[in-house]
Write a protein that binds this DNA or RNA. Structure first.
Lengths: 340, 340
DNA sequence: AGGGTCTTTGTTAGCGCTAACAATTGTAGG
DNA sequence: CCTACAATTGTTAGCGCTAACAAAGACCCT
């Protein structure tokens, strides 16, 4: 099929010569300009196919001042949530004819963020999507004074910056409401780090739902998202036994908690109900299968691209998009035990 | 700091005017050409700093025919291994001054691969790194007749294509040797899909090690990498009980297996030893903590970039790089039970 | 038929950069 | 003092594309 034109790739000029038109007409065809006659368009398209012509993006970018590239700045790409958000972004981007360039960082230091942003703007990214779930990211970005649209995942928009977020607080409330509906009254919370946006939002949701039900919110322990921290916290909780239900801020910590409970002879859900957050694919196979709150990260990524296109292509203003969570009930939650 | 030049970003010409030199001299400075006097270089660098000049990559690419962009084609980015490989690639790329553009696909259909490759080459990628752990990927890539260097992760190089891989077979042998050293003689294997490169390689390693020890290799079941398949297979294994040890091809399936065993009253490691593959961060917190084979994916990614640079910058020929695995012993393996 | 409008196509310039070559300077040797 | 050669700097062209404008037809109306 593909003919091996020896040296250079074909240019507009080559296509034009073959179709007996000017290069500008070819340009019109590939850019879908309206004023091209059907017959001309046909000839040009044939020539494009025959030569295997592909537009040179560098040349195009030079004159349009658009690179059709979206820069994604991400930390914690090894984690389920960020990785899947990236996936959603990438898919939507490709469908819309955009390229996705990534810059990964560890942690969320101001310097690391600004380096990565510099890297992406050096490439001429038309817009930035930031998947850095740490508190303070927004401030660093604001200080950078960027002149391309920026969309921050997981945080509400603010000033120039747009936000696309899952409704973490609502998710937490769904989880707690589920436990309350099962009759639990002493409901603890193993949170993520409180300097993470998501960590704090879930604490807030837990508090609010408890407050509305007139229940106490004094059982809060801060973890670090890892299964290990969940395990250590679980060991302590198993000794005190002052809650009949625990809302854990992610599935991984819940995994650690389950293991600690198992070792200490605390049965789940007979003695204590446990509910997680995220719904990773593995969570259905924990012991017992974990009740949790599902987050649709791919959808989140797609919404990011929608918002980005609105800004890049139509110059729309910023805003905040919120995606809803969903409760997934499995076997780690049950009615409050009689003997509290 | 940054002055807000109203409309356009500064160009070479602007820097040149400020430093009282020609734009070409500025170009020489930013490209580290030798024949620039120290004083001129100083003035130019000062002007660059004052104006906040950044080179326009599109213009540069247009003339050099290099984009400084590496395209990464990846499937299964939600999985631990591929995600971390990408991370390693990205880090090494950025350090070397390259951009990383990604194209994610689902599955490994020929059409999906060729679409994604087209997307990346449309962007003018200087080289491609392919993280698609399915069998047949190599053939599809070969058929595409690409004119940029291609590095395939997880597979041995072949013809034009380079390979960077973890030594899966060795990893499998380490796992099986560990079980044999504990006295096990009936060692089963829950494999990944056999049309995945890694899945097949681990089966081969398992077979070879057993063969050398004169043990039977008739206990093979094929899974699909998911915790769910591990669970279903575990239920069956728990009923037959014809092995005292099981080598599972990844940690997620091992998780499912553990749950099935737990439900059926099969104790791990007292009744059956279980060993996984990958060493995901969670594996230390399974019940019991999982003995497994560690793979250094970030290292893998870095090696990819090393190889890529050698090809892009020095026109080196292809080759195959192999990274070694490491056995991590935890609590899911123990000596063979007396009563077999 | 002639003047207006609309549609289709062509011509020209320039995006910002680097490569190739030209010009200028400095320096040493005859 | 003038040539030979190297080191440094400047000038010109062009990478492949799109925007803006110009030109040429096609068509309708009076």
């Amino acid at each position: 099929m593909g003919n091996n034109n020896d040296r250079r790739l074909p240019r507009l000029e080559d296509v034009a010569a073959r179709a007996n038109v000017s290069h500008q007409t070819v340009s019109r065809v590939i850019n879908n300009h309206p004023n091209v006659s059907a017959s001309t368009r046909g000839r040009v398209e044939a020539a494009i196919a025959e030569l295997g012509y592909r537009r040179n993006t560098a040349a195009r970018s030079l004159v349009t001042r658009r690179t059709q590239t979206i820069g994604v700045l991400a930390s914690e790409l090894g984690q389920y949530g960020p990785a899947n958000t990236l996936l959603g972004v990438q898919q939507a981007a490709r469908e819309a004819g955009y390229f996705v360039s990534i810059a990964a960082i560890k942690g969320a230091g101001a310097e690391a963020i600004s380096d990565a942003v510099g890297h992406l703007t050096d490439q001429g990214a038309d817009g930035l999507i930031v998947i850095v779930p740490h508190d303070g990211t927004l401030e660093v970005l604001e200080g950078l004074n960027l002149n391309v649209p920026v969309i921050v995942v997981g945080e509400a928009g603010h000033g120039q910056l747009c936000g696309v977020m899952l409704d973490q607080k609502l998710g937490a409330r769904l989880a707690v409401a589920h436990l309350i509906s099962l009759g639990h009254q002493r409901i603890g919370h193993v949170s993520g780090p409180l300097d993470w946006i998501d960590g704090q939002a879930r604490v807030d949701g837990w508090r609010e739902e408890l407050a509305e039900a007139g229940l106490s919110d004094d059982l809060l322990v801060e973890g670090d998202w890892s299964a290990g921290s969940g395990y250590r916290i679980g060991q302590r909780l198993a000794e005190h036994r002052n809650a009949t239900a625990v809302f854990v801020s992610n599935d991984q910590m819940a995994l650690g908690l389950l293991r600690a409970f198992g070792e200490k002879g605390v049965r789940v859900p007979e003695d204590v109900s446990v509910i997680g957050f995220d719904d990773q694919p593995e969570s259905a196979y924990f012991m017992p299968p974990l009740t949790t709150v599902r987050q649709d990260f791919e959808e989140l990524g797609k919404r990011c691209m929608d918002l980005m296109r609105a800004q890049v292509e139509d110059g729309a203003a910023g805003g905040t998009v919120v995606v809803g969570p969903e409760l997934v009930v499995r076997d780690s939650t049950a009615a409050r035990p009689r003997l509290t």
